[in-house]
């Protein structure tokens, strides 16, 4: 109990102290996970919509693979990226290993199946009538598909928040390809691992609190944005 109390105390002290090192670590966490989320979104949303709407040979298989990869262990994603970026790997010449770029690549690998799979599901739950309504109002095929995606917003935003939660809390991949180098690739989660290994349990707990707060704030912002775009959305009232 002492350690937990101490950790809570230390966490708030850490926030109040505006520790330079910690600010850098927090900003890098944000930078890596948000960049990965944006990239995963940019390729994952169209890919998911495509999988949901286009009928082609092997579509079911690809969907199933995507669903499976939604549970890709971060360490495995990290290992794969590591092997590619390593000096002995095919992309070794780019010298990307142990840089934030490598961490973003690994996290994109983790986030993409999640965004893609959940987007596909969200779009697939849309009814034929959405498409019919758009084309009967004179929409081109492209316009109608964009409308379908627009109408799936709730599901897609859920996909993005789920992915963000996974990415910001993930340690295996960023540890592996980032290397947890102080001042260069150390992020909140790898800091927690390190502090724990060094036996600084309360400091680790403190950083954990910062991580949770950060996640909370981001989710709050997303929810706010979501509310703004859905001001007309009816909520279910349970009486």
């Amino acid at each position: 109990m002492d350690v937990i109390w101490q950790g809570l105390k230390e966490g708030f002290m850490l926030i109040l102290s505006l520790d330079q090192e910690l600010i850098r670590v927090t900003l890098l966490s944000l930078h890596v996970s948000l960049s990965a989320l944006v990239i995963a979104g940019i390729i994952g949303i169209p890919a998911g919509a495509f999988l949901a709407l286009k009928n082609f040979y092997g579509r079911k298989l690809i969907l199933n693979i995507t669903y499976t990869l939604m549970g890709l262990p971060p360490v495995l994603a990290g290992l794969i990226v590591f092997l590619f970026l390593s000096n002995r790997g095919p992309l070794g010449d780019f010298q990307l290993l142990f840089t934030p770029t490598a961490m973003i690549i690994a996290q994109v690998l983790l986030g993409f199946p999640l965004v893609c799979g959940l987007t596909a599901r969200a779009v697939m739950t849309q009814q034929q009538e959405v498409y019919d309504t758009s084309v009967m109002l004179g929409a081109t095929r492209t316009q109608a598909v964009l409308t379908l995606i627009r109408e799936s917003r709730i599901g897609i935003i859920a996909a993005l928040t789920t992915a963000l939660g996974r990415l910001i809390a993930e340690v295996g991949a960023v540890m592996m390809v980032g290397g947890n180098i102080q001042g260069k690739t150390r992020v909140l989660t790898t800091s927690i691992v390190l502090e724990t290994r060094m036996g600084h349990d309360s400091r680790a707990l403190g950083i954990g609190i910062i991580l949770l707060l950060l996640a909370f704030i981001i989710m709050l912002i997303i929810l706010k944005l979501e509310k703004r775009s859905f001001k007309d959305d009816s909520t279910i009232q349970i009486i």
Binding site: F98, G179, I181, G183
Partner: peptide, 19 residues
């Protein structure tokens, strides 16, 4: 100066990659 905060095996591996 890279403080990597890792075990010996991992640090060795990283040092090798980073020459």
């Amino acid at each position: 100066y890279n403080s990597v905060g890792k075990g010996m095996g991992d640090t060795y591996r990283m040092a090798d990659e980073m020459k």
